[in-house]
Amino acid sequence: MTTLHTVNKHSLNSDLLTSCLRVARGGDCILLIEDGIYNVRTLEDLAARQGCELSGLQCCVLHDDLTARGLAEKDLPDFISAVDQAGFVALACAHRQSVHWF
């Protein structure tokens, strides 16, 4: 009964990630896509400020959206992994529902 959340904007100019973190619960996955990629540097701080425990969540980025923006897998913090398009589909199938924060 877990959920896949996708987030497609940066938290400095939208409340998407904040809202997503508010309602994400243990076992859920947060997948950063498009400009949501830029959250990789601030996700941990934002979660801490909200009192959100990231350890129970799976955090991913879409690989091509990452590299397109000049970042690489080596730039990712340990708790974030990259998935390809097939991985995206696999995540969508692994969770009961998807919530798209856009």
Partner: peptide
């Protein structure tokens, strides 16, 4: 959300 079959935002 968890009790939903489909969620639209």
């Amino acid at each position: 959300i968890r009790q939903s079959d489909v969620v639209f935002t």
